[in-house]
Write a protein that binds this DNA or RNA. Structure first.
Lengths: 121, 121
DNA sequence: TATGAGTTACTCCTCCAAAAGTGAGTTAAG
DNA sequence: CTTAACTCACTTTTGGAGGAGTAACTCATA
C-alpha cells in the first residue's frame, strides 16, 4: 500500500498530473511489462506459455503485469472456457498493438543512437 | 551500491542484455529525468534555473539526473567559464534532441490512446 | 586588515518508500 | 494427487528525499 503523505508520493503524483507521459513511462518501467506485451504479440497467449517464454519471471509478477496491462486496456483476458484445469487466453487490443509499434521505434532508436556505458544506469 | 548477487540484479541485467529498450526505459523511468531533458530544451541551461523550473526537485536528484544525461550523451556540460561563483551550462546533443522528439510522440500517444484508471499504476 | 556572509553547483550520508523476488496456499474437476 | 492460473504474506533490493557540508572565490562590514 502507498503512503499518500510522503514527498515521494506527492512528487510522483505531481509529475503524472503535469504530463501523462510520466504515467506511461511509470507503467512501462515495471520490470517485464514490455516483455509480456511482446510475448503475447508473438502468440504466447496463456499464463503458462508466457511463464515458459519469459524464463526468469515469477508467478506473482506475471500475474501483476497481466493485470496492469488489462487495466490499461492494452490486452484482453478471456476466461470463457469451461475447462478444468482453468484456461485463460490473452490478446492485444488495438491500443496494445499501437503501443507495441511505438516501442519498436524506441527500440531501434536505443540500438542505433544510444550509448549505454557498461556500468549501466 | 548494487548487490550484484541478487536475482533482482540478475533479472534486470538479463532484460537489458536481451534488448536495449529495457535499458532505455530503465533510464527514462528515473524520476524527473524526462522533465530535466525537456526543461533544458526549453532554455533552462543552468543548475539553478532547472531547480527553479522543476520546483519540487531536490539538489541531489537534479545533480544525479544531469550526470546520467551527460553519461548517455544526451546533454553536454560546459564549465569553461572562469567565474566565481561557478557557472555551468547544459545543452542538448543531437541524440538528446531526437529522444525529445520521440518522447513527444509517446506523450501524444498517452494523451489520446491510453486510459489511466484514477487509482494510478 | 581580518572576519564573516553570500554565491553556484555540486557531494555525501542517513532514512524511508516502493518494487521485486520467494515460497506456500487456493480452487475445482477428473 | 494432478494441473492452470492465480493469491497472499514476507524478505530483500533499489530508489528518492532531507539536510548538512564543500570549493573558490567576491563584497561588505568591524
Amino acid at each position: 500500500m502507498r503512503k499518500v503523505s510522503s514527498t515521494n508520493f506527492h512528487n510522483q503524483a505531481y509529475l503524472e498530473e503535469k504530463c501523462t507521459l510520466n504515467e506511461l513511462i511509470h507503467l512501462l518501467s515495471k520490470r517485464w511489462l514490455t516483455e509480456v506485451l511482446f510475448s503475447i504479440e508473438e502468440g504466447n497467449n496463456r499464463f503458462s506459455s508466457l511463464k515458459e517464454d519469459l524464463k526468469y519471471i515469477s508467478d506473482n509478477i506475471l500475474a501483476d503485469r497481466l493485470k496492469l496491462l488489462e487495466q490499461h486496456k492494452l490486452i484482453t483476458r478471456n476466461d470463457n472456457f469451461r475447462e478444468v484445469p482453468a484456461r485463460v487466453e490473452y490478446a492485444l487490443t488495438d491500443t496494445g498493438l499501437k503501443l507495441s509499434g511505438l516501442l519498436d521505434v524506441m527500440c531501434k532508436f536505443s540500438e542505433t543512437e544510444m550509448e549505454f556505458p557498461n556500468a549501466s544506469c
